[in-house]
Write a protein that binds this DNA or RNA. Structure first.
Lengths: 159, 159
DNA sequence: GCTGAAAATACCTAGTA
DNA sequence: TACTAGGTATTTTCAGC
């Protein structure tokens, strides 16, 4: 939504630093941005208010929490009518195992990122909650062997 | 790596809260966990030290920063020898447009999440930096129409 | 700049092997 | 007793006005 927000170089510096370290203190943030603390804090609040900053989150180690399995599922539906697409999105919205759901163009309608404790848990999820969902024509799944890159967010250019 | 860390219910509460709000103050974190501030802070530091908490990041609105395009690329290589897999991973590690790189089982070797400012920028990236990379046999790309779910992290059960 | 709150350190206490 | 984990007190730093 916030496509009309004008971001100057200072804003971009702030955003880059907060994307990199979401717990950076405001004074450090201000120092890097070349500001004193109060105007820096005002900018951060404005960026939050405008929805440019959507939230702050700790990145947790999946394996340490017992989620050893990450799977990508390529889903095709029988009907691509908007109502049916929405229904599928609502269905996966309620599944905690599904962390991401992106609608795609082309033959594949959706790509899902799914986490599970182990293969058994994933298979059970797949057969009981995904392939049996209404309107699902086909599901192709691929296990993640390893993740070599997972950079949070997007590039924030200095300019 | 940290697969042998024992996490009790208090740790899980802390992790869930920090995953949900990475800038929560330590006193609030402690209050929710049923602790006073100092032992809570010690737990957080220990979790960071052990690598259970990998970092803190602000989640930014892609569109507001001019990244209107998200693409998933399914990449197959000619050789799946470990050295060749590593070389490909090293190649994409240097590409800022590539935010995620997961090695998969099956016919597809890698799935990449790629961001770009617009379609032109993406096409240029694709032809100049991805399909021409050494050892790449095929690249199938799918544009993201919309993202209906993008939950940070993983489910953290109370138990 | 100023004020109240939080972070961070040092130190103390209780339970357990 | 040594070890582990939480609590108390104090100082320093930061958030917010």
């Amino acid at each position: 939504m916030p496509n009309d927000i004008a971001l100057d170089a200072i804003d971009r510096t702030i955003l880059r630093d907060l994307q990199d370290d979401g717990r950076m203190t405001n004074v450090e943030l201000a120092r890097r941005a070349g500001l004193t603390a109060p105007p820096c804090l005002r900018r951060v609040r404005a960026l939050e208010e405008a929805g440019v900053i959507e939230g702050y989150h700790a990145k947790l180690n999946s394996g340490a929490l017992g989620y050893g399995i990450t799977v990508f599922a390529l889903v095709s539906l029988r009907s691509q009518a908007e109502d049916d697409l929405r229904l599928f999105e609502q269905h996966v919205a309620e599944l905690a195992e599904v962390r991401e759901c992106h609608m795609l163009n082309g033959e594949i309608d959706f790509i899902l990122k799914i986490v599970a404790h182990d293969l058994q848990g994933f298979q059970q999820f797949l057969t009981s909650k995904l392939t049996t969902a209404p309107n699902v024509a086909s599901v192709k799944t691929s296990l993640t062997i390893r993740t070599s890159k997972d950079v949070p967010g997007i590039p924030v250019d200095a300019a």
